[in-house]
Write a protein that binds this DNA or RNA. Structure first.
Lengths: 210, 210
DNA sequence: TTTGAATTGTAACTTTTGTTACTGCCAACT
DNA sequence: AGTTGGCAGTAACAAAAGTTACAATTCAAA
């Protein structure tokens, strides 16, 4: 774990903090599709992402989903931060988008380190800022763009996060994450295919040029 | 100013911090409709709201607006916090919704106080959490609800913030903040009136029971 | 008082999105 | 080989939202 820490956080945290994280943190591996946090869960530890990716989803009362954003290497969950400090329930669901490695930090250390390490404070503030920015982008998408543009953004984003131009999703899965219907996704994907921007296969989509 | 501080923040900050705020902060009064921050501005000081209300707006490339949320008494601007620390440009616009009194704190103190005062840290984290939560509610609104429901929420929110069941807005102004067209707003308002939930006047809307 | 701008109401129409229904296809399993 | 369930394609229709156009009203300034 120390190796992972040094590789990913050495330019961010001072050595003494790295050592502390190494001491109290526990390594956790999750498989693609595995659920990390459910809406309403109490959060007991804070994740630091070493590798992989986690998707953060919002859900309404009827069970309808919406993809908010992805967490990647070096990220942490901003929602978790305040949940830890305030003993609040999670407002979101977190699911591993890829096989993912994380370091889990007990919440008691949070408060201690924010007082003790300037680099930790900066990291936490930086995380908040990134998350707020990503929430704003999500709002931009749903407020200012039509479904065809949102779909393109979704595919681009997915390609970036998985680092793979072959996207292994069904139309139904995409529909859930964009909070629309399967028929609409099929329709728009077909239009993208006829424009030569993607190729459609069973259970997967090949991105040609978006 | 010390009186304002003690009235609004005495249960949040310790006395020494209150004294420091009193020393370095400056009182600022803004009239309803006055602009506080524009998108792209660099932020040089952090606001603490003493009274009144500020609306936070997002804008897309075409100049289309969307109301994100309101700041009220005791709030601070979470976007400002990270902007200060990271020397970043504002992603949002802030306009006084009512006549408003704030205390402006120079950004240099931010970093200092986060190291020095636990109560300040908690305040900052609490602010982040509230803002993230409000962003989530905004996302819920636009993603999961139709325009008629969003309009009702908007009116309820406005009533709560202004503490007045008479809303002094034109249909066009409401349309801007919900990012829709005037005709749509007029249509839906008329429907609410015919249901007996509101009464429509020129330049104002009376909320009866929503 | 007249003028003109701002505000609201409404009809008619278009576009976008969502829904329902049915089809064919593929892959896994018996 | 036959059955079955999940997946994708598509047509037809419905609902929501956006657009254009125009009339009527109000209100303040000239």
């Amino acid at each position: 774990m120390l190796k992972d820490l040094k590789e990913n956080f050495t330019h961010i945290f001072e050595d003494t903090l790295i050592a502390e994280i190494n001491e109290v943190g526990t390594l956790k591996e999750v498989k693609e599709g595995e659920k990390l946090i459910e809406i309403g869960d109490y959060v007991r530890s804070m994740p630091l992402l070493i590798s992989g990716a986690i998707k953060i989803l919002r859900e309404d009362d009827d069970g309808d989903e919406l993809l908010l954003y992805f967490l990647e290497r070096g990220d942490t969950c901003a929602m978790t931060l305040t949940c830890c400090l305030g003993q609040k329930k999670s407002e979101i669901r977190a699911i591993a988008e890829l096989d993912t490695t994380l370091i889990m930090i007990p919440i008691q250390k949070m408060e201690e380190w924010t007082g003790k390490y300037k680099s930790w404070r900066n990291f936490v503030f930086q995380s908040y800022h990134e998350r707020l920015t990503e929430m704003l982008e999500t709002i931009d998408s749903i407020a200012f763009y039509n479904m065809d543009e949102r779909l393109v953004k979704y595919l681009q984003n997915k390609q970036k996060v998985t680092n793979d131009s072959l996207i292994n999703s069904t139309h139904q899965e995409i529909a859930y994450e964009l909070h629309t219907s399967r028929v609409v996704v099929s329709r728009l994907l077909k239009k993208l295919e006829s424009m030569g921007k993607i190729e459609l296969y069973r259970n997967s989509i090949k991105i040609v040029s978006l």
